[in-house]
Design a protein around this nucleic acid. Sequence first.
DNA 1: GCCAGATATATGACGTGTCAACTAACGTCG
DNA 2: CGACGTTAGTTGACACGTCATATATCTGGC
Lengths: 158, 158
Amino acid sequence: MTAETRWLTTTEERAWRGLLRMHDLLVNRTGRSMQDEFGLSATDYTVLAELTRAPDGRLRIQELSRVLEWEKSRVSHHLTRMVRRGLVSREECEDDRRGAFVVVTAEGRAAIAAAAPRHVEDVRRYFLDHLTPGQITLLAEIADVVVEKNVSGREAAP
Amino acid sequence: MTAETRWLTTTEERAWRGLLRMHDLLVNRTGRSMQDEFGLSATDYTVLAELTRAPDGRLRIQELSRVLEWEKSRVSHHLTRMVRRGLVSREECEDDRRGAFVVVTAEGRAAIAAAAPRHVEDVRRYFLDHLTPGQITLLAEIADVVVEKNVSGREAAP
DNA sequence: GCCAGATATATGACGTGTCAACTAACGTCG
DNA sequence: CGACGTTAGTTGACACGTCATATATCTGGC
């Protein structure tokens, strides 16, 4: 006994499909630069960004999992690959012997330092440069609202 | 001789990271419904949507590749999996013996017909319902601009 | 001190995406 | 006709993500 479906209006569909298409385009364009020119995937980049922002370039794996909002197994698999390529390394945790740290290697720091300026340029070239400051603000607000509504009540319930 | 990098302002970063986060949340939420309740991935859904919209539920594979903007090999791999699950089938092409058609099966039609109302509800629940009509229009415009600027000059150059 | 959960991480299987290489059929220009 | 470049589609290898499961350690009663 489902009520009649309220299909999407033209504008609603334009917003939804446009969001998906815009996202894919931007991810492809920015990702290709990073991959082709610096050998980093977008995910490598975010992992390195979190690590270099942390004191001593070290984080507990659970901590990384939390800030990135990635499943633990995803983090584990990804770190295995990054370790293999010399971007990070694992370290034991003295306090909690179950636990482990990830640490950026010198090579990892070099990689993200090299890639970061180009990445920011790409974000401007493919995305921000086509929008007015007003549109950028609007989009930031839209994203904040949607994220907040979807996240509250699922994690850290009051 | 690179100029100094113009790093992102707070708002710019909020827009960029917010876009990525919002997208991931929405894709996860809507994807999980479809997967758990109807056994379809988001990509299955879009393939079936294109096919059911086409006359006779048939499309040349190249045509599908073009409208979805997917690499040929991606299409091919995905169709192989969908065929295995009985959602679509391949047919030979008489006119051009290199070519092939994909056709939705009855099962495929049933699957998307069952999933569509729920999908639309999800798009509303997780996304549209949290925004004002003005914001939805704004977002549609933003997506259109960004997509248009990134696509023109790469395909179908004037 | 010990045992029953809970917690931190790793692993294997499998679906998905990309890239490069391959097969087969078209089209054309001599 | 026949060699040649192009087009349609497939395939295999490999990177990535998710799920279920395994292993080791911690923690809180008793």
